[in-house]
Design a protein around this nucleic acid. Structure first.
Lengths: 211, 211
DNA sequence: CCGTGTGAAGCTGTTCACAGCT
DNA sequence: AGCTGTGAACAGCTTCACACGG
């Protein structure tokens, strides 16, 4: 099955909505209702959902529980994922804490790594900091599949290469650099500076609030 | 001038490249060279750049310095931007530290706010934590235009509304919720959970590394 | 009658190919 | 000769409109 990244991100949003409906013990929901409540497009929801089989009942809508289960399964959220946070600076440790705060979720920080000898051995955000050099041992040992790359831009590429060599298959990259990517590894960039600059543009565009 | 968000984000990337070339005292660069060095598409670079006037010299390429200046100006990065970080939890304080680490850049954290009385008055990441309730005074006082929303999802909407009411025009939102947006305020969502779920999908898609 | 499922239409963004300038 | 600037083809995504089934 091949899902476009845009659809994929919408699925996450749908899931969030469905979880809420499920908690509220809503059994059925129509694309209309979802669209109105969560500011989505009804047609798009239907298009997206039909990719995984026909779930809806015409004239009624979708049954919340099975749809929730199916999407959870599609996204691979029915199993636990061990992840490594590489670079335990402010961003990395914030991320580790963030994940650590939702232990019921499918993600768990299995290792926090850094190259700074000062940090190694310390507990940061409830995670023991271990040396990056042990990556290749820790990854198979703890069955780590995902990596969070939160190192300075200058060492991002080499650290990325280390992660790939250690066998990590999915990387979330916070370093503001375009990486030379390995073909089998999926990565997603989150570049805070780009986002800030985007905001700056919109400020420059319309500097004054209509008073 | 109206720039699409996609183009806008690419401009940030171009700027980064141009800054580097400028440091290396490269005077001219062609779209080809930019494309090869930074893994972009030459045609796209040209298309993007022509939106701001004709900068290139045919047969030669682009002069780095003027292009750098122009793009910097277009994105509004030739002026300082004071921003407020709202929610000084792990994510907010990491962000504050992050910005604080580049004091030469156009962005400066002018206020770190939280609603937790325990945190107020403390220094976190070099920023004094002040109460959210003072937002409406601090924003005009310190000429704050941008806000970083890093509060829990449950209070994201009300905090967003507070920011808007205080006169903030651009918001970077880390809360995993779709917000009811005010029309004049530009906001950008950064939803870490969605990114993680995206990565999980790609893992589920091809679980085994070709050995 | 109501809501899903879906081809067709419309739109946005990217790539191509080449004319035109230096 | 080389590289920009650009219309035209192309691709991907979204919206529309309606046939179909409960």
């Amino acid at each position: 099955m091949d899902i476009s990244p845009l659809t994929l991100n919408r699925l996450s949003v749908y899931l969030r909505c469905l979880r809420r409906l499920h908690e509220q013990e809503v059994a059925y929901v129509s694309s209309q209702q979802l669209a109105l409540q969560f500011h989505l497009s009804a047609a798009q929801i239907r298009k997206d959902l039909t990719q995984f089989g026909e779930f809806g009942t015409r004239g009624v809508g979708y049954r919340v529980a099975p749809l929730l289960d199916r999407l959870t399964e599609v996204l691979g959220l029915d199993q636990k994922h061990a992840l490594a946070v590489v670079g335990m600076g402010s961003l990395g440790s914030a991320f580790a804490r963030h994940i650590g705060g939702t232990p019921d979720g499918p993600f768990a920080v299995a290792a926090g790594l850094d190259s700074d000898p000062q940090k190694i051995g310390k507990q940061i955000g409830g995670i023991l900091v271990e040396p990056v050099s042990e990556l290749s041992q820790l990854v198979p040992e703890r069955d780590i599949k995902m990596g969070i790359l939160a190192v300075p831009a200058a060492v991002a590429q080499e650290t990325y290469d280390l992660l790939v060599a250690a066998g990590i298959r999915s990387i979330l990259n916070f370093a503001p650099t375009r990486l030379e990517k390995a073909p089998e590894v999926h990565s997603r960039n989150v570049d805070l500076r780009i986002y800030l600059e985007e905001l700056a543009y919109y400020l420059a565009l319309s500097p004054a609030l209509p008073a």
